[in-house]
Design a protein around this nucleic acid. Structure first.
Lengths: 334, 334
DNA sequence: GTTGGCACTCGGTACACTCGGCTGCTAACT
DNA sequence: AGTTAGCAGCCGAGTGTACCGAGTGCCAAC
């Protein structure tokens, strides 16, 4: 643990570094509010902080820069929660007051909102459909000779679609019969559960329902709408090494990695993952701030922002928290 | 028009510049195959090409670099169509041989395929739903008290969803009645056309159908799945000016701009749009290679690749052409 | 019309040098 | 004992100079 003075010095270093992106020297720290000692004393203390792993020097005779451990301590102990500046709060309010056509679209726009608020990349992971919602309706529509579309409407308003093959010459009547039968027996059951559907008299219809059930139960064809990114372009400003930018963007293109990353961080009970804490090597110079959001009190999905480790943590935390709350409200009220 | 020798020189400059990304001097050009004159002659000719606007010098006493006009001439007259290298052809074949769960997902993966083939950013614009496909089925499912989901299945297997408000207390029976009524009268009509649906006896049902029709006719809530990008990270390597990368990425985040851009280029009958020809200022240093694809002989959507103006045009054209053909086949056969 | 030769231009690199910011240490001070 | 001022030293960034090499334009000769 750090004594008060060391803590104050560490805070000053982190804050200044976040602002200027330049290694910060003892002179600046001594001048910072809350640090009322001379630069010489600061130098002594900084040497200690470096020995303990909170700071490091890019090269001899340069200022100090926070390490991951330094940022971590800052986030955990040195930063006081901050309110979103008025303008931003206004923007959030305005955003959620506006009407949004569809939930999916709202999530996509939310990622852009997060990005605008923080000047970082915004991430929204959609509610994990599977076990949550109950089936509201099932419909089978034939297409051409041997294909059909299976449409499942869930109680949360989402719609799942699956294309399946059907025996040649299944008529509209049989498809409707199967639809009605499926809806009757699946309505109210959870999307994940494998329900038992009794046979009808008609073998062709039973065949159809069986195929439909397989399709529903099958692995959800990893939904392309699972994660929404906003402001990825801002990554290009966050780092001056073009190679870093490329690596980070490459990671962001892999939806599965992003989803797993966010879930993982949330599951570990973290609100902030710094550098290697993300568990993704190319994100060594990035930090992630996340928060879950809820629908009717149940955890639904996750939002977050991704940026360089020297991001403005208080601001990012505030933005993510506010948006998560408003989003939860918005998704619950309907 | 350019005489043969000038053309050969221009070709050599473009080809070398595409390879090396360095201004190319008379010496290199003289050594290029197809140019059998001395470097002095090349110098004279290059001065001419510069005067005519095909080349320019980044600064006095540097080599020459192609201008937009130079690339344009190269694309139009100097490049012979090229086959995709065996490995790539194999990759394309393998890709389309594999099973794909849903059309949307295949399109998303196709954009990645394009990116892999060319080392550029791949773009796929989904079939423009509106006027093309015929309605196959309409279903209205109530959700809670006053909301309902309208699900329209089209003959091409795509599913559109719209959330609408309905009067309180509309029961499942009325919703089903409206669904059946709508399906009956809309089936076979084109998605865009405003059909006339006769009244039923039931006022509540008529009210529902009217609302549903409004929702269908209304502006399609710009579908988030309209455009798929693959390999945007490669943009970060294409340019060394980080600011250019940022601008281009920012453009790519605006789906509408991308869609409009591709449609526009296709509509102008172009296969390649170079720099300002794109009509988008931040893409001044980019070029776009596009091709339409078809479903059952009808133009459906567009694919393309975006990269720096000094991209490998023959390769990009070949890749886009092959993928467009295979994709058309794949989407038609079903 | 083409070519070799030549003078010239200019970006890039290497090097020396300065400047400024920062450190660590020590000695003096409270 | 803890704090501070002062100082010597370090080192990156920036600047000026010299030089090299790639490339050009022009001219005279072929």
């Amino acid at each position: 643990m750090l004594d008060d003075r060391k803590a104050a010095i560490l805070r000053a270093v982190v804050q200044e570094y976040i602002e200027t992106a330049q290694p910060v020297g003892s002179g600046h720290v001594a001048r910072a509010p809350g640090v009322d000692v001379s630069s010489a004393t600061v130098r002594n203390e900084m040497a200690g902080l470096e020995a303990e792993g909170y700071l490091r020097q890019p090269h001899t005779s340069a200022g100090r820069v926070p390490t991951e451990k330094g940022y971590r301590f800052f986030v955990d102990h040195l930063q006081r929660p901050v309110r979103l500046p008025g303008r931003s709060a206004e923007e959030v309010r305005g955003f959620f007051a506006r009407a949004h056509v569809e939930a999916e679209q709202m999530l996509a726009e939310t990622s852009r909102l997060l990005s605008d608020l923080t000047n970082l990349t915004g991430v929204v992971v959609a509610p994990s459909g599977p076990p949550e919602a109950a089936v509201r309706s099932v419909q089978l529509v034939t297409l051409g000779a041997s294909a059909a579309v299976l449409v499942v409407v869930l109680s949360d308003g989402s719609v799942e679609k699956r294309t399946i093959e059907v025996p040649d010459g299944v008529g509209d009547e049989r498809a409707s019969a199967a639809s009605a039968h499926l809806t009757l027996h699946l309505a109210g059951t959870r999307r994940g559960a494998r329900a038992v559907v009794p046979h009808t008299g008609d073998r062709a219809v039973d065949d159809l329902t069986a195929r439909a059930l397989d399709a529903i139960a099958g692995p959800p064809p990893d939904d392309p709408d699972l994660v929404y990114l906003g402001g990825t372009a801002r990554m290009a400003q966050a780092f001056d090494a073009i190679e870093t930018v490329r690596e980070v963007l490459a990671i962001l293109e892999q939806q599965i990695v992003v989803v797993t990353l966010l879930r993982d961080v949330i599951d570990r009970g973290l609100a902030v993952a710094i550098g290697s804490e993300t568990g993704v090597a190319p994100l060594a110079e990035c930090a992630l701030v996340v928060a879950p959001y809820e629908i009717e009190g149940e955890r639904a999905g996750t939002i977050g922002v991704l940026g360089p480790t020297r991001m403005n943590y208080p601001q990012a935390l505030a933005a993510v928290a506010v948006v998560s709350n408003r989003l939860s409200d918005r998704l619950t009220e309907r």
